[in-house]
Simulated scan of single mutants.
Amino acid sequence: MPDTTLRQLKLLECIPRFPFKKTPQEMKEVLESEGFDISERSIQRDLIKLSSVLPLISDERNKPFGWSWIRNAPDFGPAMDPIEALSLSLAHQYLEPLMPGQSFNRVKIFFDRADSVLKESSRSKIKKWRDRVRVVPQWQRLISPKINEKAQSAIYDALLRGNQLKVNYVKRGTTEGETRLVNPLGIVLQGNVHRLICTMAEDPDNVRHLPVHRFRRAEWNGLKSKEPKGFDMDQYIEEQRIGFLLSNKPINIEVLFEASSGFHLTETPISKNQKLNQLESGKFLLKASLANTEQLRWWLLGFGNRVEVLKPKSLRNEFTEIAKGLSKIYK
């Protein structure tokens, strides 16, 4: 295969899908790392020639100018076989309720391609299998918040490149946004909400987490991001209870379930160390050492009066107070 063809194939590989873009200078660096000696002018000529037959666009609205595949450009990779299509189609069902709409739309083109492959296999057993498999949410599903796509793209890009951002952010309980300078440090996906872990430029040592859907605008201000010394993502998540952790110390629980509510633990244990015994009454006694989290409490409360917390006493007291509060509401 001629070097020109190889170079152009590698060039196409490094072009992102809109709204992301890559400049000829950035493409030159990628090609040079692959052993191609080429000028920016030659890359620009290649791009213009390729854009005449492929869905490529040049964004010249803002500097630096860059190139992208159009948003719904087809994937030019190897043909997808039916088993791969089935796997992606099932992943589609599982991921769609978990991901914010704008994020999901970025990868939807791959799921659409999988569905088209399955439709072409309409007479096959694989198509029938796909039609008979469903993903059902275990908990109450919430509608994902609306996200400003341009702001989200800028945030993700800044995190990747280590850039500082000028943003317009709307605080909870307000309607007007504030202009701030933020240093992106990380992203946490919490259910269907994305949170930006960051610091403010005027307070670079105070790490905070902000829901991405509250950003109205975000753009690079030309400066590099500043990171607090010794910042550790996992430690921050634990300290701020973003993961709903209430204590680093595990909690040893003893819980009594009605037979119909506790049976699922015989098939899907809550932990590897659980001890589950069925009593003469038919009830199940669960003993386990678990992370001390809010989710644990939500899980237990979801069984209503079909579960009784026996130990530890502190957790039983929590549920006693909750029961008292509910009795006042529903008296």
Rank of each mutant, 00 (worst) to 15 (best):
L54P: 00
P250H: 01
G302L: 08
G262R: 09
L31Q: 02
E219P: 00
G66W: 07
D3N: 11
K166L: 14
K287L: 03
W129C: 13
I15T: 09
H213Q: 06
I48N: 01
F36D: 04
F263L: 10
M1Y: 01
S247N: 14
S314C: 01
P145G: 10
D59E: 13
I155M: 14
E96D: 05
D59V: 09
S58T: 04
D75C: 13
S122A: 14
D131C: 03
N305H: 08
K21L: 08
G186N: 02
R132M: 05
C198L: 05
G191R: 02
R241G: 04
H209I: 06
L47T: 05
L6A: 12
L276T: 04
L50V: 03
P64A: 05
E32V: 11
D131T: 03
P269S: 08
S52D: 10
V307N: 06
K125W: 02
K224L: 10
N317D: 11
L296P: 04
K49S: 09
K287I: 03
N206D: 13
L286K: 07
A85N: 01
R217I: 00
P16F: 03
V135S: 05
P145K: 07
G77Q: 08
R180F: 06
L210H: 04
H92F: 06
Q102E: 15
L285C: 04
F284Q: 00
I329L: 15
L296W: 02
F20L: 14
P211N: 00
P312Q: 08
E178F: 03
E267L: 12
S153N: 12
R214I: 02
P24T: 06
S33Y: 09
K226L: 11
F111T: 03
P312S: 06
R45N: 13
E149F: 15
E321F: 07
G186I: 03
I57D: 07
L189G: 06
S271A: 15
F263E: 15
H213L: 02
